[in-house]
């Protein structure tokens, strides 16, 4: 049985139940209970809320993160903290004036200990995140919004691309745009079925992000059409890169057509200050689409069933 990305650890479940029951039983055995008048219910509610919330954090981290040192640190830290919150609640119910200093320290220790481990874990997580950012760089560049990610290929979708495009325009950075469109993908889908079509699209998206440089951004436009932002101010470079990617895909028996806009072409569109941002994006992508259509239209008759089955 799984809980999120990890299997349920029965050892961990047993330990949590023990750590909840054991102090309760010990206190019942050795400590007197407060009168109901002396109990501060408000305190119990607030501390109870803290306990519940931190327990939920624990579950969230467990369900979302794959195993590893960072995950362990976060889990151990949160477990101690949650346990500390729990002891605080019990504290409100039992009278423990006559306990020795040593026991008092043991009772107070879990919270600060948990927070310390958690903090260390977060620091490690930051280092880990750097590595992941590097890995994902040509898929997301500067912004991470999970709802802008296309569920099939895990690339940013066109809305994600527009966010990046707008950001680059605002920054005034120079870039080229390239559009890739698979040839005869519909036929592929029809002959090989949707399952293989999905797999194929996924493969293409991996190839594209593998072949592009780390500073470029690859997104899924729609269907079997992809769009890339090429970080370069050089007019010669953009077609060369587009060509290279196309050829490397052809070597994998994946036929694509590509259309592009050179950095100077983009510059000439964006220099026109009277356009609003949205219209500018629309125009840029529109030009790419238009070029692609012309290429596709002249291609289709020639490239009959070019796709290797």
């Amino acid at each position: 049985m799984k809980f999120g990305v990890n299997p349920i650890s029965w050892l961990w479940v047993a330990m949590s139940i023990t750590s909840l029951l054991l102090p309760l039983m010990l206190m019942f055995q050795f400590l007197p209970i407060k009168d109901s008048i002396a109990v501060d219910w408000f305190d119990i509610v607030t501390e109870g809320a803290l306990f519940v919330v931190s327990f939920c954090w624990l579950l969230v981290v467990y369900s979302a993160r794959p195993k590893g040192n960072v995950t362990s640190l976060l889990l151990v830290g949160l477990s101690f903290y949650t346990f500390g919150c729990y002891l605080d609640i019990l504290d409100e119910i039992f009278i423990r004036n006559d306990l020795g200093i040593a026991l008092n320290i043991i009772e107070k220790l879990p919270t600060p200990l948990g927070l310390t481990i958690l903090t260390y874990g977060l620091w490690q997580w930051r280092l880990e995140q750097r590595v992941i950012n590097q890995q994902l760089h040509n898929r997301e560049q500067f912004i991470r919004q999970h709802y802008l990610v296309d569920p099939l290929t895990q690339l940013n979708d066109i809305r994600g691309f527009e966010v990046h495009l707008k950001h680059s325009l605002d920054k005034g950075s120079k870039f080229g745009l390239v559009m890739f469109d698979l040839d005869n993908f519909t036929e592929f889908n029809q002959t090989h079925g949707m399952a293989n079509g999905d797999k194929f699209l996924n493969e293409v998206s991996h190839w594209l992000s593998y072949r592009a440089r780390n500073c470029d951004l690859i997104c899924r436009y729609a269907g079997d059409r992809f769009i890339a932002m090429i970080d370069s101010s050089d007019d010669y470079f953009v077609p060369i890169l587009a060509q290279e990617i196309t050829e490397s895909l052809t070597a994998q028996k994946i036929q694509v057509s590509s259309s592009w806009m050179l950095p100077t072409e983009i510059q000439s569109v964006t220099n026109n200050q009277c356009f609003e941002d949205e219209i500018m994006l629309f125009r840029l992508i529109g030009v790419l689409n238009q070029k692609m259509e012309t290429i596709k239209f002249s291609n289709t008759a020639v490239n009959k069933w070019k796709l290797q089955c």
Binding site: D157, I158, R159, Y221, A222, G223, R225, I285, G286, N289, Q290, E293
Partner: peptide, 13 residues
């Protein structure tokens, strides 16, 4: 619609 990209991809400009 929000999926405008699909319109352009499938139906043209």
């Amino acid at each position: 619609p929000k999926q405008l990209a699909y319109y352009h991809k499938y139906f043209g400009q």
